[in-house]
Design a protein around this nucleic acid. Structure first.
Lengths: 211, 211
DNA sequence: ACTATAGCGGAATTTCGATTCCGCTTGTAG
DNA sequence: CTACAAGCGGAATCGAAATTCCGCTATAGT
């Protein structure tokens, strides 16, 4: 502070809400960081390092941190996007001619999306909080419920299945998509089909009550 | 080294092999460390810390490290023991009157043992190497193969199942036993039964080939 | 009981990754 | 074209764990 301070021009106030318009380079960097992070976390899982994200985005660490105050925030943003994609798929699944095809494709998709993204997979497995928030935000509970009800109404899905079983199944599937456990490697599509067979009506009627 | 060095008495050479008999307190501590580690890793997962293991065993960190040169070694020892237990269960399962009961109980047991041990569960999910070694050492591939063949011979298990599918299933189940993912919490016994339903003969015949 | 060791305890060191800090650069309004 | 604040880069800091080190203590053979 040397002499006079110019009056603040209240610049870029055109945006609705409280947020201010980002400078052009800032917006560009934001994109770059997200893109780089998406790839790194998908490939290396949650252990991918912030400095690597920065490097990979051609940006300094500081920049990454201005856009996402913590690693956790960055991950949450990525996860939110993936769950949005999932919700979209669920909506499509509700439009299929055949109800069984809808729900079974959705389940296959859950497995595939995790097979393609190790980071997502790890969040599912070890970050209940993040995942739960994202799922709710994307409206997945509601969507799963509708998928289940519809397939039950058409008589193709066992009656004793509850929508809560869907995230559970997705979660279990996620893990093996990543399994490099010798004999299990690359066999996950088989488990998907086994589970789907287990879901077909009428079922054995022995599902335990949820506790 | 001040004056004369007594001749080494080549003490405690009674043990076969190269290893020397452990001093009484050393043996005691070894047990204590294992016991403490078993509990800590089961409760807190692989993130449990070495200093905590030491404290919980009433022992210094140094002592833990004399018995297990690295954390990894300690974990491997614990895992080996769990897999031994698994193999034992598999052998029992081969003795049941009914073949289906044998294999289905074994699968339930795989889930339960992981539900009770978060550490084991995490190893299954993220330490292919450790897990693979332990499984082979315990003879599990062979045992799974026999369980599968036997249940197929009796016509109760779908024909297109391979023994490699068993570790895969166990692995997938392991994860949800730990899931604290809102809606999925505590529902894993349901997934076990769904999968078992999916395994019953004759099956839909659509299992993809392993790649 | 005596002494050479095996074995012990736990403070100090190392390692490594997230996050902070701050002087410099650049977009932008006037 | 200028001035100013928004943004930037990346070295330096912090923190958390694993692991090492070494003087001290207890065991066991004599």
């Amino acid at each position: 502070m040397t002499t006079a301070t110019h009056k603040r021009p209240a610049s870029g106030e055109e945006l609705a809400g409280g947020r201010r318009a980002l400078r052009a380079d800032a917006r560009r960097n934001h994109e770059a960081v997200i893109a780089a992070a998406k790839k790194l976390f998908a490939d290396q899982g949650l252990d991918a390092q912030m400095p690597d994200v920065a490097r990979s985005a051609n940006v300094g660490v500081g920049t990454v941190y201005r856009h996402f105050p913590t690693k956790h925030d960055l991950i949450a943003a990525l996860v939110a996007e993936r769950f949005e994609r999932l919700a979209q798929k669920a909506r499509e699944a509700l439009q299929t001619e055949d109800a069984w095809e809808g729900i079974s494709d959705f389940i296959r998709f859950c497995a595939q999306i995790q097979a393609d993204d190790r980071g997502l997979c790890e969040v599912m497995g070890s970050r209940p909080d993040v995942m739960d928030a994202a799922a709710r935000a994307a409206g997945l509970p509601e969507l799963c419920d509708r998928l289940v009800k519809r397939a039950q109404r058409s008589g193709q899905l066992r009656r004793d299945l509850a929508w809560e079983d869907i995230p559970m199944i997705a979660c279990g599937l996620g893990r093996i998509t990543q399994a490099t456990v010798g004999p299990a490697t690359g066999r996950w599509p088989r488990l998907v089909e086994i589970i789907l067979d287990g879901l077909r009506a009428p079922g054995s009627g022995r599902l335990p009550r949820c506790p």
